[in-house]
Design a protein around this nucleic acid. Structure first.
Lengths: 203, 203
DNA sequence: CCACTTGTTGATCAATTGATCAGCGGAGGG
DNA sequence: CCCTCCGCTGATCAATTGATCAACAAGTGG
């Protein structure tokens, strides 16, 4: 009466599921030790043999590309831009909400570290990603601030300063393993409030 | 009459000079490719044979330790603390001067990248260094701001936000290879000014 | 000009690592 | 129950890499 035994770990797996399993392990592994991590350690973590990796990925380079694709793709939500431009909401709230969503998307061990490893390695994807952030997110945010009565238009360098101050929370936590507030919300709110206060036009 | 020939590259070198030459090359090499760089590439860059490295450093680990020592040591100037506490100068100027000096010390290709490689690798030195920054520099700065009339006391998280926003300039330039202002001075001045404006006590 | 000291090198070893392949064996169809 | 398909493994290769060592040769003193 006791149903099937508690899932004796199937050795033969559906190819698609196996590929996902390997990719999951690869993201975790490369985030931890960097893109120079060995395929053998990765295989051990994934619970498969090293040879099997090459059944699903032609080479290590192909595997790391798949890791990039999984980590980068769908990380930026196109709806953010709409919220940024919604002038029915005060700019301060828009900035706060945006950076709340943005940090919720990128403040993960895997994303933060793989992005930094890739940056140091000179990956082109990083520059493309950051160009995108600058032109599609920071520039519109800057326009909205400039269009707000009583605020002086910030420069793009000012925008990067705001951005960097917030992203640095994630760097401290995931790269340097320093203690940071569990919820970055209050720190973000304070940073945004200060940023706008510093842009207040003289009376 | 034509003096000595134009320095035919001496093959035998004074041990101390050779050690320095290797260490210079090691700093440049590991900054570029990370601590996983090979001793053979390093030797090629230094213009010596790979075997010679082991005449001056017992192992690769010993070599990277020497690299850390050279990069970290003497980077923080103890006189900064005195300037920070010099209440004859306005806080804003003190903040501006401090971050001018600080960025002048750490905004180099070698320092920025080795620090980041080491951070990702989990080096203990990084956490020690950043603890020092927090307790010996940011905390005093915070006290000075708090002691300034008309300013609300910032939290340590606020201080890290100011710090991160400024350091991020160097991250963009040296890690991500993005264009940044040649001189970070104006951006620093703006960031400091905004930070303090955002701390102005309500009338 | 010789001989000794020692900075330097080429050759080499053992371990690691990316990649390959023949064959094993689990699972479903007949 | 057996046969076939194919997911999977163990063994193995070639290249790379940290480390060693005997031997070479540049500089120096006699």
């Amino acid at each position: 009466m006791d149903g099937p035994p508690p899932a004796p770990p199937r050795r033969r797996l559906d190819p698609e599921a196996r590929r996902e399993q390997i990719l999951d392990a690869a993201v975790a592994h490369f985030a931890e030790v960097g893109l120079g991590g060995t395929t053998r350690d990765l295989a051990r973590r994934a619970g498969v043999t090293q040879a099997l990796l090459y059944q699903y990925f032609g080479s290590k380079a192909e595997l790391t590309e798949a890791v990039f694709a999984r980590v980068y793709l769908g990380r930026l939500d196109p709806r953010w831009l709409d919220a940024i431009r919604d002038r029915a909401t005060p700019v301060e709230a828009r900035l706060r909400v945006f950076y709340g969503e943005y940090t919720r998307a990128i403040f993960t061990y895997e994303w933060m570290r793989i992005f930094m490893w890739a940056g140091l390695a000179g990956e082109v994807l990083n520059r493309r990603y950051l160009d995108h952030v600058g032109e599609r997110l920071l520039a519109p945010l800057r326009e909205e601030i400039a269009a707000s009565p009583g605020l002086l238009a910030p420069s793009m360098e000012d925008m990067w300063n705001l951005h960097g101050g917030i992203v640095y929370i994630g760097i401290r936590r995931f790269i340097y393993h320093l203690p940071t507030p569990e919820d970055p919300g209050p720190a973000i709110a304070a940073a945004v409030r200060r940023f706008l206060a510093g842009l207040a036009a003289p009376a």
